[in-house]
Simulated assay, not measured.
Amino acid sequence: MDGYAFRLRILHERGLSLVNKEIGGDQMKRVSSADKMLFVRSQHASMINGLQFRYPIFGPVVRLAKRWLASHLFSACLAEEAAELLVAYLFLKPLPFNVPCSRITGFLRFLRLLAEHDWAFSPLVVDINGDLSQNDEKEIDDNFTQSRKAYEENTQNESKAMFLATAYDKASEAWTRCSPNPLELKRLAAYARSSASLLTKLILQNQTDSRGWECLLRTPLSLYDAVILLHGDRLPYPKRLLFTSELDQGIFLGGEGRHVAHGNASTCFHPFLLPSDMKGSSLEQLKTKLMVNFDPLRCFVGDVEKGFSNRLKLWYDSLGGDAIGLTWERSKKREREEEETDGKYPVDLLRNIGELGKGFVREVYLLKAPRLSS
């Protein structure tokens, strides 16, 4: 027993088409939707796998890009497949440079692409296999124009701020349909611009000090309205934690920030089996400890979003971070007054969130109170 568990999904297009003929109504729609997404994922995986064979350095650049996104708490904003397409574009359209020949070069260009591409007026077309014809490119341009026109007509429509088109997804429906929205993309571009500037400085000065490089993957927690710190040993992958997150206590001096809650680690669950857990245990005992597909971070984030999505937004690291950033959603003055009379805004609300994650949440901090909006 090596501690790994797998879930296998099999794509059989003919089999699913036969199932569609035998059933009807809403059930058929659900099967068709699952069929479509499974097909899209298979197309994407096949193309990315082929690109990796053409450019061996592609994989390391992708891993570095994904780690940067997660470390700055953008896991919910940009799908992993979207990150792969962004990096793929750097290898397919490297001009005026050559194809990246190192992971640092590729990573720097990834940051600059995020920061400098004109996302509002230009789609990003990633043609991995050279399959797109002139008609396909025209269709992509038409889809992009329609999406921007829809946003201009209704500014509340925040979908497709980043338009990524491929041969299998000419309307950018697969990975960026709902996120990042314009505000998320603006924040993402600002972080990328700052990191690109720092990385350029480190390269030019030939710095070997680890602290300078660590700053690339340390996100400033003081930029959030509230912060939740988690117990690192209760994360699904404790060994992936790069740095233990702590808040600088200086930000509380003379400000409105305060420590809201503290929690001890639970002894009821261990998402990850450590070697010490296996010593002296029989196979049957280990089976009772192994939690297949149990991710406490995902469960906690889902519970918070279910109960408080209209009041706050969560920013988190799905790859192994122990910090969650919170930003307040804008609420009307009347709604705020109702919330304050309920005694849940903002300190009690954060305490309730801490209770939701009891045994998993280490600390909860309030940094900035919500602002009234008219």
Rank of each mutant, 00 (worst) to 15 (best):
F269A: 05
P238N: 00
G280T: 07
E335A: 14
L350E: 05
G59Q: 12
G232F: 04
K186Q: 11
C268N: 09
G359E: 07
R112K: 04
S266Q: 00
S282F: 05
G307H: 01
D233Q: 13
I23P: 03
F269S: 02
P296E: 09
E173N: 12
E81N: 09
D248T: 04
D141E: 10
L92H: 10
F294D: 06
E363M: 11
Q27D: 03
L113C: 12
G50T: 05
E335M: 06
L90W: 06
L86N: 00
P100L: 00
K344V: 12
G25C: 12
T288D: 07
L108Q: 15
L114A: 03
F6C: 07
R67L: 14
M1T: 06
E305A: 00
L18F: 01
V301H: 05
K306E: 14
D142R: 02
L202V: 08
K358S: 13
F110V: 00
Q27P: 00
N352W: 06
E137S: 05
C215A: 03
R9P: 05
S147P: 10
N352I: 07
G263P: 02
R112L: 12
R41P: 06
A88S: 11
A261L: 13
V125Q: 03
S172C: 15
L312N: 05
L235M: 06
R218K: 13
R63T: 03
T200A: 15
A323W: 00
A34C: 13
Q207V: 12
G263E: 02
W119N: 08
Y316P: 10
L185C: 04
D277N: 08
M278S: 08
L319Y: 02
D127N: 07
L51T: 04
V292R: 05
L283T: 09
D209R: 12
D118T: 14
L314C: 09
S373T: 11
E184Y: 01
P238L: 13
A174P: 06
Y55P: 12
Q43P: 01
K279H: 13
S159D: 03
L124C: 12
V364D: 04
L349K: 00
D348Y: 09
I48T: 11
L223P: 00
E116P: 07
P296Y: 12
L204R: 15
W119A: 02
K149L: 10
T288A: 05
D26A: 08
G130N: 12
Q156M: 08
I104A: 10
T244G: 04
K21D: 14
H259L: 15
D209N: 14
E84T: 05
Q27G: 05
D248N: 15
S33Y: 09
V347P: 02
G302W: 02
S374P: 13
M1V: 10
N206F: 03
F269Y: 15
L286V: 06
L241H: 06
L242W: 11
S17A: 04
R311C: 13
G280C: 03
P96H: 09
K160H: 14
R112I: 13
D169S: 05
D142I: 04
S32E: 14
Q207R: 08
E337C: 04
Y224Q: 08
Q146I: 14
K186E: 09
E84Y: 15
A189E: 03
M28A: 14
L247E: 15
